[in-house]
Design a protein around this nucleic acid. Structure first.
Lengths: 214, 214
DNA sequence: CGGGGCCTACCCAGAAGTGGGTAGACGCGA
DNA sequence: TCGCGTCTACCCACTTCTGGGTAGGCCCCG
């Protein structure tokens, strides 16, 4: 595996530890060259213009400019580069946002080094790479898209969440306990693959499940 | 003040304590007649059809059907009745929702009995009654409406709140501490008269301050 | 009659948000 | 120069949410 031309990789992560660790590990592979590193998406763009990487490995959560937003900038300014997102979260929201914005891969930070190397090789070769948990999340979304998978009770709960009611208030309104409200809330998040209450609200408004009127 | 025809009042509150207390107090006034009481908006509607009250004093937070939603039902089914909302909250959201839906008054539960009686008299006479804190909230809204009163930094914060980021994540993104994020969040709520995070999100989406794209 | 979905309810521990404050630094404009 | 708004930061006590569970009762469908 030593005769292949080196794959030029640009690393972007605001955690120096991750950055240095990744760099050290990747440089043990003959066919991978870490062409540059950056702690911010903007810096990464500048460096990218100089080093012209084939693969950009970028953290999804970064100060100033999020990795998600940065994907499009890279695709505009460095169209030959393929972007792989690195994330701590397997939230379907993050994943599908990344894919929508043009990421060629999405890997979780807890995967093995080998998998990261595989991802780099794959996307450098024009493919896409998603780590296993990620793939599940995407499949789940496709299976459900266009439908409204919520039960009537979950609609009630979601509507009240959007209205800004607390678990306790929702419980009072529906005549159940707040424990049950919490269960419904948890089920909603799990079912929709949305990690945050804010995401639930945007989902509900998007889907027209509830009206914006208070 | 004894020769006036009695004002027929319907009380609706899901707290029996409040209901009974209000009834007892109001019945000490010669010119007020408690024509009926109910613990739910639906029940209140049914009773209202029978007793034809001039004034409906209704709690804003009730199981099954919220007071806000019930306002329109009353206005449709009992057009001669004027609805006064009773609320524990001086949130601008609740208040303006009530007014939008056609409430003739809005009083906080911590006001004096005299003020409640005044409110009943006023709306029975065709006027509107809002307790002092409420009036402030409405004035504040008018003064600001159509403008965007937020500072640039508050925009940043609000955008990230809508994106579902936690205080800690927002702090990391903006390079500040989470304490500061909390301060901004508090200021946002205070400035906008919105009590809940959900309300902030809906405000932001309504105003187009942030895009729906994640 | 079994299985599965739904609704309900509870357990726990830890994380996060809330809602009052106060306060310093900076810059802009009167 | 003084005041005001802005951004920053911290204090406290309290409430709420989170994210794992488990589990019983109900009803419908096969």
């Amino acid at each position: 595996m030593t005769e292949r031309p080196k794959i030029r990789v640009l690393l972007i992560d605001n955690h120096p530890l991750v950055l240095d660790g990744l760099k050290a590990v990747l440089e043990t592979f003959d066919h991978i060259e870490v062409a540059g590193t950056a702690g911010l998406a903007q810096t990464g763009l500048e460096i990218g213009r100089q080093v012209l990487p084939q693969v950009v490995l970028m953290d999804i959560n970064m100060p100033k400019l999020s990795g998600i937003d940065a994907i499009e900038l890279f695709r505009n300014e460095l169209p030959q580069a393929r972007v792989v997102m690195l994330s701590m979260h397997d939230s379907r929201e993050y994943i599908s946002s990344s894919v929508m914005h043009g990421a060629a891969g999405y890997i979780l930070k807890d995967v093995s080094t080998d998998e990261i190397v595989s991802a780099i090789e794959t996307v450098a070769g024009g493919g896409t790479y998603f780590s296993s948990g990620v793939f599940d999340a995407l499949m789940g979304e496709r299976a459900e898209e266009g439908s409204d998978p919520l039960t009537p009770r979950e609609h009630d709960i979601l509507g009240l969440i959007v209205a800004g009611r607390s678990n306790k208030e929702i419980a009072e309104t529906l005549g159940i306990t707040s424990a049950t409200t919490e269960t419904h809330r948890k089920n909603l998040k799990k079912k929709l693959g949305i990690a945050t209450t804010a995401g639930l609200i945007r989902y509900a408004l998007d889907q027209g499940i509830v009206s914006k009127a208070g």
